[in-house]
Nucleic acid binder design. Structure first.
Length: 227
DNA sequence: AAAGGATACAACCGCTCCGCG
DNA sequence: CCGCGGAGCGGTTGTATCCTT
């Protein structure tokens, strides 16, 4: 192994701190540059992914709320697998997170269906294993699930979200309103939202501060010191 | 208490898009 | 107009953790 071999796999805390430092310095756009100057033997891609999915301040961690789940399902049924787009409507959630949630959800639902239907002479070729599962998802198009399973509150999440939903309904109102509004330009992807999301990147001025991780704080302290 | 299965999460890969020279 | 490089997106895979038997 040579020194300049590109590193892969899990990030260490040290790497995280380093990345946060350099993103703080140079902003969150020039990933290749950051990858080089930071001394991390990572690709720019890898750096960006780590930042967006893990280090970005303001990320909500932990389980999705029923409202968020409902929103994901709703948006997915409208827009298909446009995860980044969906993520923009869910402040603090990443496309990766949503994608993962969706996959899990789909698998759960298809398993439930299999169980409830469980035709003995079933000629259902599609749902044999997770791999096939995902392939059929792809092949049949994103809407397929909702075409069939659609509006009926068969999933426990949906039922739950109705119960709990009322409380935070107001907080979600804006988002639903926005969705309704953006429905029209949904067809023209060129009109992607410019800026209402948490992810809005302010060009060079990336003045986001990490909140939760001690090491990240110390990193910024270190930065101050370096200045 | 151990084993096996299910689930959630993190990361990589390949493709596409976009801006720039 | 074309080619190139960087950034972003969606799909897929690997692994750690949790749950059930």
């Amino acid at each position: 192994m040579t020194q300049d071999e590109v590193r892969k796999g899990p990030w260490t805390e040290q790497e995280d701190v380093q990345l946060v430092c350099f993103v703080g310095l140079f902003g969150d756009r020039r990933w290749d540059f950051i990858a080089k100057v930071s001394g991390l033997n990572r690709t720019g891609k890898s750096c960006r992914l780590r930042w967006v999915n893990y280090l970005h301040p303001g990320l909500k961690r932990g389980k999705m709320t029923p409202q968020e789940e409902k929103l994901v399902l709703e948006l997915q049924s409208r827009w298909g697998n446009r995860w980044s787009r969906i993520a923009k409507k869910l402040p603090g959630r990443t496309d990766n997170e949503i994608k993962n949630y969706w996959r899990t959800h789909i698998r759960k639902v298809s398993q439930e269906k299999k169980r409830t239907v469980s035709l003995p002479s079933s000629s259902s070729p599609a749902l044999k294993d997770p791999k096939v599962d995902s392939i059929t998802m792809k092949a049949s198009g994103a809407e397929s699930f909702y075409d069939t399973g659609g509006p009926e509150p068969s999933s426990s999440t949906e039922i739950k979200s109705r119960e709990v939903g009322k409380k935070t309904e107001h907080a979600m109102d804006d988002i639903w309103g926005e969705i309704a509004l953006s429905e029209e330009d949904a067809i023209t992807p060129a009109n992607e939202y410019c800026g209402e999301s948490l992810w809005e990147t302010q060009g060079e001025e990336c003045k986001m501060l990490p909140r939760s991780t001690d090491s990240l704080f110390s990193c910024y302290a270190e930065l101050e010191y370096l200045r």
